[in-house]
Each structure stands twice: as C-alpha cells, then as structure tokens.
C-alpha cells in the first residue's frame, strides 16, 4: 500500500503535465496487450462470423453476397450434419471416458511409493510432449495395413490370420482414432489427477484404516470425493478437445471410410479448404464453437456450482 502511494505520488510529480487516475493508468499499461488481443483474437472471431453470413467461395469471389443466416440453415439441414454431430459426440464421449479411466489408473500408480517413481512419472508425460500431428503419423504407421506394428504383433501371436486395415474397417475405425487420441491426451489428465491425489491428507487414509475400511471403501469415500474437482477439470478439457478434434481425423482416416469418422471439425475443414467455401465453412466452425460453448457452460456450472471453487 505504501509502495502504491509512493508510486502514485511519484507519477503526479513527474507527470505534472497530465494527471492519470489509477484506473486509467492501469488501462494504459494493459493497452498493448488489449490491442494485441483485439487484433489477433477478437478481430478474426468477428470477421469469421461476418463471413459466415455471406456467400463467399474463393472459386467464385465475384458471387460474394450477404445471405444472412442461410449458411447456418444449409449446415443444419445438410445431410452431413446429424451424422457428423453423432460422430463428434461419440468420439468425444469415448475419448473422455478412456482418458479418465486410464489417467486415474496411471495417477494412482504414480502416486504410490514405488522404486524409480520419478522415471515412471517422466514416462507418463512422454506422449504429451508430442504434437497431435506427430502422434497421428506414428499411429498411422502402427495401424498400417501392410506393414504396421499392430498387424505384425497380432499376426505373430496368432491372433489374426491376415493383416487387416484398422483405419478403414467399419468395425475398428472408431476404436483406432479414439485410441490415438487417448494416447496423446492421457498424460495431461494423469498429471492433473496426480496433483489432486497428492493434495489428499494422509490422515484421512489412516483414519479410514482405523475404521477398517476396505481398499475400495477408501477409494470410494476418500479418494474420489477429493478428486471430484480435478476430475471435472479433466472432463472439461477432454470434452472440449474431443469436440474440436481435427488433426487425428485428418491424418488417420480423412473422415472415412465413407463419412464414418467425419466430425464437425473435419467437415468445417473440408468445406473451407477443400471446397474453398469460406462462408459456409465459417458457419460450420461457428457451429462447433457453439457446441463447445454449451458444453463449457454446463461444466462450468458443475464446477463452480459446487461451492468448492469460487469465481
């Protein structure tokens, strides 16, 4: 406080020509950051929305025209919309479940006092260091129908009689993309849950043991309640990431076979960059953003509505 008064005083003495209020001075200091955000974030967002209200295909730029919400009507009535929404939700649901279960298991193991625990924790983090694109390319080789490691392993174990295509089989394409996504996003979630586990007071476990609580009962009545907030964070991050998924789909399946793995995000990409229909592509993107927003609000209400975390 004393330092602040000294600063204000110094400013009024040194800046005798113009007086600035504390609030104005704060805004002035933040101005560069605000301008940067307006230029790099706000402007593109607003411009993208404006474009989504126009007929604008780069192949026919002369046909540029304001069409109101027609692009949104076209998206929602498109025969691709419902299937893409279904694929997106399916992918998001199973990715989130997969990550949550596996991350919880990994966090519980990494939280135990086992030898070389530091190495184990570093290994858990390793996939997180790889970008989505690199991960997808790696899995593309693993799933390769002619020389992939997965085929080689299963064939040598006698579990399959012929090499097969995992990415283009209607039975396994979902599983393949969910697996790749789970592998890539698992470490962050494991880290969050591990941090949550380390915050649980050991006295609670000691007390439960005194009460002769079983392992399951300790997990159910001590661990899980204390992990509810980290779990919610994991759910939010995974769900939002799942809805926006693009790189893994683009590199592994290209949305196929047929439209089987075409998500909303991939449809937005195809419309914008393959069909070069910028107007409708932005309408697809805003639809994804809208869905993301709805889910984010839902989770936020869950997270902040509990009273444990204050906004």
């Amino acid at each position: 406080m004393a330092a602040a008064e000294t600063l204000a005083g110094a400013r009024s003495v040194r800046g005798a020509r113009f007086e600035l209020s504390e609030r104005a001075f704060a805004y002035l200091l933040n101005l560069p950051a605000i301008l940067t955000i307006l230029l790099l974030v706000a402007y593109p967002i607003v411009d993208a929305f404006w474009l989504s209200l126009h007929r604008y295909n780069l192949r026919r730029p002369e046909a540029y025209a304001f069409v109101g919400l027609q692009n949104y009507v076209d998206v929602f009535t498109s025969d691709q919309f419902v299937p893409s929404l279904g694929v997106t939700l399916f992918f998001t649901f199973w990715s989130t479940i997969g990550v949550l279960v596996l991350a919880l298991g990994m966090a519980l193991v990494a939280n135990e006092h086992i030898p070389q625990r530091a190495i184990l924790r570093a290994l858990i983090l390793l996939p997180w260091a790889m970008s989505g694109v690199v991960t997808a390319l790696m899995w593309k080789w693993i799933f390769n129908p002619n020389s992939g490691a997965l085929n080689g392993l299963l064939y040598s174990l006698g579990l399959i009689s012929n090499y097969r295509s995992w990415l283009m089989s209607p039975d396994t394409s979902y599983l393949a993309i969910v697996t790749a996504n789970v592998w890539n996003t698992l470490p962050f979630s494991a880290l969050v849950l591990l941090a949550g586990l380390q915050a649980i007071p050991s006295e609670l476990y000691d007390a439960a043991k005194v009460d002769r609580a079983s392992l399951w009962a300790r997990f159910r009545h001590v661990t899980l309640p204390w992990l509810s907030q980290p779990i919610l964070i994991v759910l939010i991050v995974q769900a939002l990431g799942g809805i926006r998924i693009f790189d893994i789909i683009y590199l592994l399946t290209g949305g196929g076979p047929g439209y089987q793995t075409t998500t909303l995000g991939f449809a937005a990409y195809v419309t914008s960059f393959i069909s070069t229909d910028i107007g409708r592509g932005n309408a697809w993107s805003y639809t994804v953003a809208l869905l993301t927003l709805v889910i984010a609000i839902f989770y936020m209400k869950l997270l902040y509505g509990r009273g444990d975390v204050r906004s």
Binding site: K140, W141, N144, P145, N146, Y163, R164, S165, L167, M168, S169, G254, G256, P257
Partner: peptide, 10 residues
C-alpha cells in the same frame, strides 16, 4: 483389399 486401399497412401 478394398479397406487397405481406402487408406490415404503414406
């Protein structure tokens, strides 16, 4: 092998 041939060549 139609399924394998549907994969975008690496």
């Amino acid at each position: 092998n139609a399924q394998a041939n549907m994969e975008v060549p690496t």
